[in-house]
Write a protein that binds this DNA or RNA. Structure first.
Lengths: 260, 260
DNA sequence: CAGTGGTCTAGACCACTGC
DNA sequence: CAGTGGTCTAGACCACTGT
């Protein structure tokens, strides 16, 4: 019976805790390919037998790997080496006007290029007093129209987005419809005379909240990107802020910076 | 004796596991300010008494909060609500030539603006065969000069960076010195005739490896940004790739995108 | 020293999966 | 059904902190 555990043992006298040593050995088995993506790890019972330790010790070791995002536990089935999901690469020109000409919103265009089936759900439109953070970004203190929605690829949720638009701009326009029409809300803003000139994006990363983990069906050990984009028109006015939370394992963000 | 636990209890009959209920209650105490930054949580013993559960149950609850980055445990002292560290905001024009004119490297300039004491250590310069990923980015297959270093702010490590420069460009120049001189290696590259025209940056986020967590002295539950920047000269040639790993709680990345 | 968290043992019962 | 991971109990000894 050959196994990934062959020849592996822990040193109870070591400074390093036993459960960390076990985690180290399983981690390197994953990293150098003795355990491949999607393969099952030895069961808890097997690890208990092999290392001669208590169940808690084994479970602490497995928890480390799960927290690092290397494995996922499936109740009743086993612990598996996690597969890396297909990633969505965001180009720095993804909001360029030429991509809107086709009458499609950014998310749909990119998904098709990536060969994945896109989906949008949980669409909600409201009018509320502007939240303080968004008021600062918009330099606006009146009410705002809030559009929130969730995006999925091949049925897996990857991103939630919430847009804030000053109500005086959006009220009574297709922007307040669940489906704002071809080209998305940026196309509508331009039709309303707010020709878009530039966007700023602010990117942070952290562990998801419980609510985010549930909405995005996230595995433990995966962080989120928070990306807040502000759209400015040619008069320098901020006309929209979009607050996006993305499962970080599904994204690569690309940006282009000038040298001058 | 008033305490944050006053009136809190768990429902053993609930679908939600007891340790998750305890975590939920502590989490909301943190989020709505009944427990402030830097304050100590009730000790394990107090939680055991209050909820009438075993120690493992309490520890599982505390582990959730630690994984979420909300608390840190200090051996022998207690469990504390984590303070958010000062963040470093990276502007999209941080590599603009005008910022080099003063003869300072980007990191030093930004740190001074932020009012923090910068530090660079663990500097290493080597010449090695190009690693495959970097070869692709550089479109280069020969040897490369590798410069690695670690940056700290006010004594706290925040970022490691490794630069790859084709050896035919860097060999025998100040780029191979531990201290490459005023303006950093970008200034040296321009003196060598490689006027820089643009940079691309690729941003991802994930949990740190063990080695990264150690080097950056990271708290559990904090992800890292990986930022890979490629510098192109006016002839369109990639002259440097810089592979950066940053403690995500210490950074906000800002980018500017054109709309056309 | 007492109080704290870190590690570990040796069980128990449960819910889920696949045969 | 047997095997898996999920939850929980009730202890033990240790290392670190502050008084």
């Amino acid at each position: 019976m050959s196994s990934v555990l062959d020849g592996l043992a822990v040193d109870p006298a070591s400074d390093r805790a036993v459960f960390r040593q076990i985690a180290d050995q399983l981690r390197s088995a994953i990293q150098n390919g003795r355990l491949n993506e999607g393969e099952r790890l030895p069961s808890e019972a097997q690890l208990i037998d092999h290392y001669g330790v208590a169940r808690m010790t084994v479970r602490n070791a497995l928890q480390i790997l799960e927290t690092e995002g290397l494995t996922r536990a499936e109740h009743g089935r086993g612990v598996y080496v996690r597969k890396r999901p297909p990633v969505r690469r965001l180009a720095s020109d993804r909001f360029a006007r030429r991509h809107r000409k086709e009458g499609k919103a950014a998310f749909l265009v990119e998904s098709e290029q990536a060969g994945a089936r896109p989906d949008v759900d949980l669409i909600r439109v409201d009018e509320i007093p502007v939240p303080p953070e968004m008021g600062e970004r918009l330099k606006h203190s009146g009410p705002v129209v809030v559009r929130s929605r969730r995006y999925s690829l091949d049925g897996a949720p990857v991103e939630t987005a919430t847009s804030y638009i000053p109500a005086e701009i959006a009220r009574g326009t297709p922007i307040t419809d669940p489906n704002p029409g071809p080209g998305g809300i940026y196309a509508r803003l331009e039709e309303l005379g707010h020709t878009l000139e530039r966007f700023t994006e602010e990117v942070t990363s952290r562990m998801p909240t419980e609510a985010e983990a549930r909405l995005l069906k996230m595995m433990p050990g995966v962080p989120v990107f928070r990306l807040v984009r502000t759209a400015f028109d040619t008069e320098g006015r901020a006309v929209e802020v979009c607050d996006t939370v993305m499962s970080a394992d599904a994204y690569v963000l690309n940006y282009e910076l000038p040298a001058h």
